[in-house]
Computed example of a mutant assay.
Amino acid sequence: MSQLQPYTGGGAVSSPLSRQGRAIGRIVGGAELATVRVVAAVHVQQARLDALDQVTSRAMQGVALVAQAEAQLAEAVPHAAGRIRHIANAHTMVLAGEVASFSRRLPS
């Protein structure tokens, strides 16, 4: 029992082991915080991509429906085919603009 030393109370001087422990704790805490930030950024980016996928998918469906109507109407009224094509093209351009505008408006 000669190796046991009595506790003298936490003096102002800290041991090298406790300083190392605190330094390691700060490193681990910083690494955990950095990891949480990266994971949060991934979740935000995934949500942005999901929203953009939905808007783009809906726009493509709209273009397909208009193209189908365009073909049917142009077959039914050949003299109006040029005007119908112009309206269908305008519709497609508006949807493309909306998709591009939506992606710019998404929060970062």
Rank of each mutant, 00 (worst) to 15 (best):
M1L: 03
Q5Y: 06
Y7G: 08
Y7R: 02
T8W: 01
G11Y: 04
G11R: 00
G11V: 00
V13F: 10
S14M: 03
S14D: 07
L17W: 13
S18Y: 07
R19W: 05
Q20P: 00
Q20I: 02
I24F: 09
I24W: 09
G25W: 14
G25K: 11
G25L: 08
I27P: 05
V28D: 00
V28R: 09
V28A: 13
G30T: 06
G30Y: 01
E32P: 01
R37D: 13
V39F: 07
V39P: 02
H43V: 13
V44Y: 00
V44E: 03
Q45F: 07
Q45D: 11
Q46T: 11
Q46H: 07
A47H: 10
A47Q: 15
D50P: 03
A51Q: 05
D53G: 04
D53Q: 04
D53W: 04
Q54P: 00
V55K: 03
V55M: 03
A59G: 07
A59C: 11
M60H: 08
V63L: 12
V63R: 02
L65F: 09
V66T: 14
Q68R: 15
Q68P: 02
A69S: 14
A71K: 15
Q72Y: 05
Q72L: 06
L73N: 08
L73P: 02
L73E: 07
E75D: 10
E75I: 01
E75Q: 07
A76P: 02
A76L: 14
P78D: 14
H79N: 13
H79V: 14
A80W: 09
A81K: 11
A81V: 12
R85S: 11
H86C: 01
A90W: 07
T92M: 08
M93N: 12
L95P: 03
A96I: 08
G97E: 03
G97A: 00
A100G: 05
S101W: 08
S101I: 01
S101G: 08
R104V: 06
R105W: 10
R105K: 08
L106S: 10
P107N: 11
S108N: 14
S108L: 15
